[in-house]
């Protein structure tokens, strides 16, 4: 579904992603894990078309991607951002935020779609005409998820979707994402620094360090401790330590 082939990303003269390759099968959830600054979010944003200055091969659903993405791409690929406080327009109501993708793609029956989208992410009806500052962090992230899904994409890119939320809300949002992925047969790429989150949602994952993928492994390998690379072992040890 998603093919990334020898991807390099430059910010000016600074190369931040080196020779990254991976494939994601339809319906699979693929994890990208690494320390902050390891380039995992950059890979995700490059696939989303938000980063200029890359070379290598990118393809979604068999179609190769150029530097400029067309509207069809944005209909099938959507993204949920890390910070729900920053990813919702502060001067627009939830209603307006959800109506925008429908207007851009010329999708009719906005009314019923918005109602359905709010139900799907378990937001109360009263939230529809509220501004983002009148919502809690978890509610905002639900709005962001509803926005990403309202035009029926087949690929969902998740950039640390829970790391800006309280621990109590994190589980709710993760379960919501797991349910939606199941119900809509979504192909996902999940970026996180948290191995527990990745292990919960992803079948396969890639470990990144310094802009390179050091190892691609299956979820079971994470659990039974058969990771090969030293950095992966470090991350696993660290997450065990944090869990206590």
């Amino acid at each position: 579904m998603i093919e990334v082939e020898r991807l390099n990303v430059h910010f000016g003269h600074n190369q931040v992603v080196h020779d990254v390759s991976f494939h994601v099968a339809p319906g699979e959830t693929f994890g990208l894990v690494g320390e902050s600054g390891s380039g995992k979010s950059t890979v995700l944003r490059t696939i989303a078309g938000l980063v200029p200055g890359w070379d290598g091969g990118l393809a979604v659903d068999g179609k190769a991607l150029g530097p400029k993405r067309d509207r069809a791409f944005f209909k099938s690929v959507q993204m949920v951002f890390q910070d729900p406080y920053g990813s919702l327009h502060p001067r627009q109501t939830v209603d307006r935020i959800l109506a925008e993708p429908l207007a851009v793609h010329g999708i009719a029956d906005a009314e019923s779609r918005i109602t359905r989208a709010l139900e799907e992410v378990a937001l109360p009806r009263v939230a529809r005409f509220r501004y983002p500052h009148q919502l809690s962090g978890g509610q905002r992230q639900r709005v962001a998820i509803a926005r990403a899904l309202i035009a029926d994409p087949s690929v969902l890119l998740l950039d640390e979707p829970t790391s800006a939320l309280d621990v109590s809300v994190q589980a709710e949002v993760l379960n919501l994402l797991a349910d939606l992925r199941q119900a809509r047969q979504l192909t996902c790429i999940l970026v996180s620094h948290n191995l527990a989150v990745i292990g919960h949602l992803c079948g396969r994952l890639a470990v990144m360090q310094g802009g390179r993928i050091v190892e691609i492994l299956r979820q079971e390998q994470l659990r039974d401790g058969t990771a090969q690379h030293a950095h992966t072992r470090e991350l696993i040890a660290l997450s065990h330590e944090l869990e206590g």
Partner: peptide, 26 residues
Amino acid sequence: NTDYVAAVQMTGASPWRIICRHVAPM
């Protein structure tokens, strides 16, 4: 460079629409 503009870009909206409806009001 905010995420909410990136999110609008991800809807595939034209630059003109983004400027008029999302940037200018701010």
